[in-house]
Amino acid sequence: MTEGIKRPDMDASRETQESAESVQFLKEVLGLLKTPETAPETEQEIKSRRRLNELVHRALIVGLALSTVILLGGLTLSAVTRQPLPGRVTGFGQIVAGLKTGSPAGFLSLGILLLIATPILRILGSLIEFIGKRDWRYALVTILVLLILGASFIAGGG
């Protein structure tokens, strides 16, 4: 019985030590991360996090709905004007031109781009959260993720 109680405690302390070593290692690798404060969130912090999550929730729905509507609009346009659907998306620069002339390709490309951009809203949501908490370390990590996304833009030759 006593053993049963003791063992998890021992496991826990060993685990904590392992994790502490892991963090030490990561600190050396990234030079960015430290063990964050473990103090529980205040009532107000929880509330503001809730509000932000609510906002992200709405942004995701709006992003999805908007891209769906634009995609359906593009499909309808192509059916009505009997312009064939494009076999490729247009370049970033040609989208605006496509929208002006009312070509389905412009709408379809815009809809797809919006779809791709929707998850990025969640990163921005996290960035706002970290800055709001003055948690600069994680704000930096978030910016790093955004930079990698930017790098893919360059890698694509866009």
């Binding site: 593009g74 659907l85 076999g87 490729r88 951009a117 998850p119 893919s152 833009f153």
Partner: peptide, 28 residues
């Protein structure tokens, strides 16, 4: 997953591998 997928989707988009005639009906 969403953010990871967006990273490579940007590359596929820019390189012209996204075919709206396939991608749009599938996604919907």
């Amino acid at each position: 997953i969403g953010i990871t997928a967006a990273t490579s989707a940007i590359i596929y988009y820019a390189r012209g591998y996204i075919d709206p005639t396939v991608a749009i009906p599938t996604a919907l």
